[in-house]
Design a binder for these strands. Sequence first.
DNA 1: TAGTGGTCTAGACCACATT
DNA 2: ATGTGGTCTAGACCACTAA
Lengths: 268, 268
Amino acid sequence: MGLSSLRVEDTVGQGTLAAVAEPKYWHLRTVLLRTMDTEFSTGQVLPNERELSARFGVARATLRQALDQLELEGRLVRRRGIGTLVAAPRVGIPVGGRQSGRAAAAHAAQEWKVVDCTTGPATAALARTLGLAEGDQVHTVRRLRTVQGVAVAAESLHVPSAALPHLAVVVDGGDRARGVLRQLERLGVDGESRSVELGVAEAAEAALLERPPGTPVLVVTTQYAAAGRLAAVAVSTYRADTCKLTFGESGAAVQVASAVPVSAAAVS
Amino acid sequence: MGLSSLRVEDTVGQGTLAAVAEPKYWHLRTVLLRTMDTEFSTGQVLPNERELSARFGVARATLRQALDQLELEGRLVRRRGIGTLVAAPRVGIPVGGRQSGRAAAAHAAQEWKVVDCTTGPATAALARTLGLAEGDQVHTVRRLRTVQGVAVAAESLHVPSAALPHLAVVVDGGDRARGVLRQLERLGVDGESRSVELGVAEAAEAALLERPPGTPVLVVTTQYAAAGRLAAVAVSTYRADTCKLTFGESGAAVQVASAVPVSAAAVS
DNA sequence: TAGTGGTCTAGACCACATT
DNA sequence: ATGTGGTCTAGACCACTAA
């Protein structure tokens, strides 16, 4: 019957008791999820919001609350002026593996594209994480990571200028970025330490990622150590809607049908 | 002046032109963020929503949209019947490092608490990721990870029963969990491969995490390899509001003031 | 009992993309 | 011009916590 004309009340009491009084939007999400899995395929557009809210007998705001959840799970993509589409499964994005230094560098050069490079005093927060005094000069390289043409992450790489004594100061923005990256590579990175947390994209990153401000992102903070000291910090924001970050020793892992992810929901 | 009686219109045009027409809720988020950073401290309760919406001259729904963003960023905690509190910085949670097998096992035993253990046929999705046929028997151990008394993650560890031939079938739930974990340890895990993505907690996990359904979580999927074959898959859901997942070689990393995280916003 | 956040409604208007 | 999702309003009632 698909997205039928059922009202929410009709589907809420599978048994005789409504029991715990599940919120409407949550129940709606479940119904939509089941419908999408069984009767829709990737890229297909759902009926519009006014239509859906009418069919389920709820206000549009309530329906939107359900769609918000599904979008957060990466199951939906909403495009203004177009409609609501069933999303493709998330792409697995390798994040810093255990590749050898050379391979990693070549890899990075391929996938990351420098946006700009600035040098200025460290903010208080940045100074803390880099172990500097507030106001110390820091090079910041902004880069964009694209996979098959689509932007998946924006990164700010912060390097204390004190760590790169051989960098000519006179070079301009475009060349300076290359200089910073080259010198950092020459330092020889001993180890990397990463953290992942949830965040939202500010205006600047959002623009680079071609998403509206407030878009949920996975914030990956990487600390690069060289010669026992913290040489650089990179803050990368990955689009949470389309990205699944993958870690692991390259090749050592057993790859079995990684294309179809097991969601926590599907398993339980 | 703090959370003054300013209306949103009064703070929108710092220059002469409102320019890009930023949504009210987004601007509101920025104002609240600045206010929290400068005039509030961890654990402090903000004025209630009706009060705040009146002060800023917006509808309560609009204010709530701004609070939703801040909550997603882990800056706010909202408690029904209590109020809205300024959240503590996220806790760094070590996720599978490069500790030696013995240390890791001891560590796991300490922090993870078994909830229950079931055995049954694999769902289609699970069978795919484990490389089994649909319906093959799989042991599932549900565990809860707590840090200093608070639940931070719920996990489902799936092990094909074919991989544990020496497991007595007669043992009941509580003992079976121990048996599965012990046998898995004996197998000797060669490597681990992980992925991290954004998800929402279903009813079951939400209850374990002491959060309402729909709570955003970081879903960590770990594939355990033994003797070149995929021996087990663990799906762990970490509370995104309070957790920052940390990866890395234990001790190798340079630890500088990790207590105060650098948000993407603060740096840029 | 009073106060809080959570849910829900029925509208309105706007920004954007297509035709 | 039309149709889409995005924003915003002004209310209402509910569920929970505390005094």
